[in-house]
Amino acid sequence: MTSVFALAIALFLLVNLVVALLAAARGPTPADRMLMALLFGTTGTAVLVLLAAAGGGTPLVDVALVLALLAAIGGIAFAKRAWQGEEGGDA
């Protein structure tokens, strides 16, 4: 029963992700489009772990973990760049 429920929620989140991605891609500013990077990290990871529970098996949890790890490294690199921009005095 959990696996059916997990599959249903995974599909729900997938629809949710597509709607949100389209909304973010529409902008209107470039910063709005950067929101897509956030969406992939959170919703993408959630869909992967749900699919693992829905019968995809534990390798999908590994995929989710690697996605999360790469997102974390990316996020830290993003923030670090913003930080160094500050110290370089570009503002």
Partner: peptide, 18 residues
């Protein structure tokens, strides 16, 4: 915590860029 770190970093970068 990994996704949180990602969201925190990316979120601040987006706000700062905006």
């Amino acid at each position: 915590p990994l996704v949180l770190a990602a969201s925190a970093g990316v979120g601040f970068a987006i706000a700062r860029r905006a």
